[in-house]
C-alpha cells in the first residue's frame, strides 16, 4: 500500500463557463489530516466531490487510495467514509436504524452491522440515544451520528466537508476531540473548512484556496511563521489611514480591513509607544494566526 492517500495533479473544473477549480495539485499522505481552507465559494466542496468521484474533473488526474478516480471511484469509496456538508441522515429512522441501513449499502449483513453498532455509538457518545429518532437529536448529535455512520465500513480515509459548520462551540470541540482520536488510530482525514481555528488545531498540513486556486500550502504554523513571523496588533477606533503613516516605520507591514488596522510588528512595544496619547484607540496584541496569512495573501479577511 502506497503512503499517498490522495493525489491530485493539475485538476480543473468549470461550471457554466466559470472556473471553479483551477489547475490544482496536492498530495495527502496516509495518516495525516489535510485541510482545504478557503472562504465560501472557493471550491472546497467541489474538490471533495471530485475526490469521491461524484464529479468528474475537466482536466487533470486524481488518484485516491491507489485507485484512479472517477474511473474506479466505487472501489475507492468502499474504503472511504464521508461526512457531507449538509446532513443527510434518515430523519424517520432511529439512530440505530440509520447505522443498520447504511451498513447494508456496504454489503454488510444485519448481524455484521449489529455487532459494531455499540462501538460506533460509544465513539459518537450516543450510547443513550440508540433508539431515539434522528429528528429528536441536536445539531451536534446529528453531526456525531453522521461521523459514526461514516466509520461503518472501517474506512482508511475520511472525507469531511465543513464538519463543524453551524455547531455551537461545545459541540464543535467534541467533534474535534473525536477527530483527533481517529487520527491517533491511523486514519487519514481530508477536511474542508472556513474556520481558521479548526484548520490550525487539527490539520497537519493545509492548502489555502481562493477562487479554486491554491494560494499557499504547508503546515499551519510553518505557514504562519513564513508569511507573518511576528506579533500582530489590531488597532480599532481610529482612522486607519492616518494611523498607518504614524506607525509604518516601526511595522514590518500593515493591512487595513474595514475599520481595523492590522500591524505586523517585530517590536510591538515601539508601536504602542508611538500610539500613546491617541485617545479612543483600542489595541489588541496577539500571536499571528491563519487569518493573518489569508489577509496577507488575498488582501481580505476570510471570516466575516
Amino acid at each position: 500500500m502506497s503512503t499517498v492517500a490522495i493525489d491530485l495533479a493539475g485538476v480543473s473544473k468549470t461550471y457554466e463557463g466559470k472556473v471553479v477549480v483551477d489547475g490544482l495539485s496536492f498530495r495527502v499522505a496516509a495518516g495525516e489530516c489535510f485541510g482545504l481552507l478557503g472562504p465560501n465559494g472557493a471550491g472546497k466542496s467541489t474538490i471533495a466531490r471530485m475526490v469521491l468521484g461524484m464529479t468528474s474533473p475537466d482536466a487533470g488526474e486524481i488518484t485516491v487510495l491507489g485507485v484512479p478516480v472517477p474511473a474506479r471511484a466505487r472501489l475507492a469509496r468502499a474504503r472511504i467514509g464521508v461526512v457531507p456538508q449538509f446532513d443527510n441522515l434518515d430523519l424517520e429512522f432511529t439512530v440505530r436504524e440509520n447505522l443498520l441501513v447504511f451498513g447494508r449499502y456496504f454489503g454488510m449483513s444485519t448481524r455484521e452491522v449489529e455487532a459494531i453498532i455499540p462501538s460506533l455509538l460509544e465513539f459518537a457518545r450516543l450510547e443513550s440515544k440508540a433508539h431515539a429518532r434522528v429528528s429528536e437529536l441536536s445539531g451536534g448529535m446529528k453531526r456525531r451520528l453522521t461521523l459514526a455512520r461514516a466509520l461503518i465500513n472501517d474506512p482508511q480515509l475520511i472525507v469531511m466537508d465543513e464538519p463543524t459548520t453551524g455547531l455551537d462551540p461545545h459541540a464543535r470541540h467534541l467533534i474535534w476531540e473525536r477527530l483527533r482520536s481517529l487520527l491517533a488510530s491511523g486514519k487519514t482525514i481530508i477536511l474542508t473548512t472556513h474556520f481558521m481555528e479548526e484548520a490550525e488545531r487539527l490539520c497537519d498540513r493545509l492548502c489555502v484556496l481562493e477562487n479554486g486556486r491554491k494560494i499557499a500550502e504547508g503546515h499551519p504554523h510553518a505557514l504562519i511563521e513564513e508569511q507573518i513571523g511576528c506579533q500582530v496588533i489590531e488597532i480599532y477606533g481610529g482612522n486607519p489611514h492616518e494611523l498607518h503613516s504614524l506607525i509604518s516605520p516601526y511595522a514590518q507591514r500593515t493591512e487595513v480591513s474595514g475599520e481595523t488596522l492590522f500591524c505586523y510588528a517585530p517590536d510591538p512595544e515601539r508601536v504602542r509607544l508611538q500610539l500613546r496619547g491617541h485617545a479612543g484607540l483600542r489595541l489588541l496584541q496577539r500571536p499571528p494566526n491563519l487569518e493573518d496569512v489569508f489577509l496577507r495573501l488575498t488582501g481580505r479577511e476570510m471570516e466575516k
Binding site: 469521491l52 468502499a78 457531507p84 443527510n88 434518515d90 447504511f102 449499502y105 454489503g107
Partner: peptide, 14 residues
C-alpha cells in the same frame, strides 16, 4: 430534499 440518494452514493452503490 432529503438527500437520501446523496448519502447512498457515498457508499459503494451506483
Amino acid at each position: 430534499a432529503q438527500r437520501t440518494w446523496e448519502a447512498i452514493l457515498y457508499t459503494q452503490l451506483t
